[in-house]
Structures are given as C-alpha cells and as structure tokens.
Simulated scan of single mutants.
Amino acid sequence: MTKHQDVLAGGLFMLIGAATSLSALGYALGTMRRMGPGYFPLVLGLLLTGIGVALVVQAWRRGRVGTPIEWGSIRPLAFVLGGLAFFGLTLTELGFVLANILFIGVTSYAGREFRWHETLVLSLALTVMAALVFIVGLKLQIPLWPAILGL
C-alpha cells in the first residue's frame, strides 16, 4: 500500500464521522437549548468528518501522499480496535469493572514496551475514575459487576 498515513487516518476519521452522523439522524436532535439524544453524536460525527477532511487536504497540499505506510504501525491499530471490540462485546456479561480492566490490558500491548505492574495500576485507577464518571456521575445503566455475582 503506498498511501500516506495522514490520508489513511483522514479517511478513517471521515468514515467514523459519517457513520456516527448517519446513525445520530435516527434519534431526535432537539435544539441547542434542549438537546435530544441525537444532537451530541451528530455534532461529534461532523467534527470527526471535518478533521478527516482537513487531514486529507493537508496531506495532498504538502505532496506527501506517496509515502508508504510502515507495516509495523498495523500492530497498535489491531490491538486498540480489538480491545474496543472486546470491551463492547463483553460489557454486559463481564460488567464494567472487569471489561474495562481487560480492555486496558489488551490495548496496552499496542505499545512497544509492556510492563504488567504498570498496566495493572493504570487499569485499576482508570476503571475507578471511569466508573465514577459514567456510572455514578452520569448515572448510565451499565452493570458494574458480572451478572453471575448477583451484585
């Protein structure tokens, strides 16, 4: 593949932004004062699409489109996307705490250096903070623990 990383990243941003915007149109948008459930995803999708367009245009203007992509850069992408898919597929079965700790553990392999003790501390701290924000603060209806535990 001979396309530049900026063009590929811009295309990915545009694809995710367009998909987010299109899916947001299925919900009520509301107004700026009374935002509906589709308002924020639509704005976020449009911003992502705009960032993608800016990346592609900037790469074309600088003439850097012919630079080959290093195949070593596929590994982080695979671990991050795999971790996200794992988190989404296991959230309801494992609960937020276990799914998030495992998600952070899987995605930490995307980096060149992996230290299990640092990853464990980081995953515990991030899980506590995320649980406080999403479950306690925003009151999202996400199971905290696996259903088998009955908590």
Rank of each mutant, 00 (worst) to 15 (best):
F103M: 09
L48T: 08
E93H: 15
S108G: 03
F134S: 04
S23A: 03
A125T: 07
G137F: 12
F79I: 07
N100H: 13
A130S: 15
V57L: 10
W71N: 14
A24H: 01
L77A: 10
Q141P: 15
I16D: 02
S123A: 12
R115I: 12
V136K: 15
I16W: 00
G30A: 03
A130G: 08
V136D: 14
G88Q: 00
M35Y: 05
A85P: 09
A85L: 10
P76K: 09
I69W: 07
V53Q: 03
Y39M: 10
L122H: 06
T20H: 02
A24N: 01
M129K: 08
Y109L: 09
G82A: 02
A28Y: 04
S123V: 03
G36A: 09
F114R: 12
A110Q: 00
L46N: 03
L98Q: 05
W71K: 15
P41Q: 01
Y109S: 00
L46E: 12
Y39C: 05
G17F: 01
T107G: 00
V56E: 07
R33L: 14
M35V: 01
G83Y: 04
M32A: 14
G95K: 13
Y39F: 13
N100G: 08
L89T: 00
S73Q: 14
L44G: 06
L138T: 04
L98M: 14
R62L: 06
L46G: 10
L126V: 11
M129W: 12
S73G: 05
A78R: 06
E113A: 09
G72W: 13
V121M: 11
G111E: 08
E93S: 15
S23C: 06
R34N: 13
I74F: 14
A147F: 15
A78M: 11
P37G: 08
A110K: 01
T90K: 08
Q58C: 14
R61A: 09
I104G: 08
A28L: 13
V128C: 00
V133Q: 09
L124Q: 05
N100S: 15
L48Y: 02
W71C: 12
T20S: 02
T31G: 02
M32N: 08
W60A: 11
L140D: 09
L81E: 00
A147C: 07
V136N: 10
F114D: 04
A24W: 01
V128H: 04
P76F: 06
A147T: 15
I51D: 08
G52P: 00
P41K: 02
V106Q: 04
T107Y: 02
A125Q: 01
G36K: 04
G45Q: 05
Q58M: 14
G52E: 09
L22W: 00
W71H: 13
M129N: 12
W60K: 13
L94R: 12
G105E: 03
F103Y: 11
V128Y: 04
G52K: 01
L84A: 06
F103D: 10
A24D: 02
A54I: 00
H117R: 07
A99H: 01
L46H: 09
I101N: 03
R115G: 11
V80T: 13
W116F: 09
W116P: 03
G82T: 03
W60P: 15
A54W: 13
F87A: 01
Q58H: 08
T92I: 13
L48E: 02
L25D: 01
G111H: 10
G52D: 08
W145G: 05
G105V: 11
G95F: 00
T67P: 09
Q141Y: 12
F114Q: 07
L89H: 04
V80W: 06
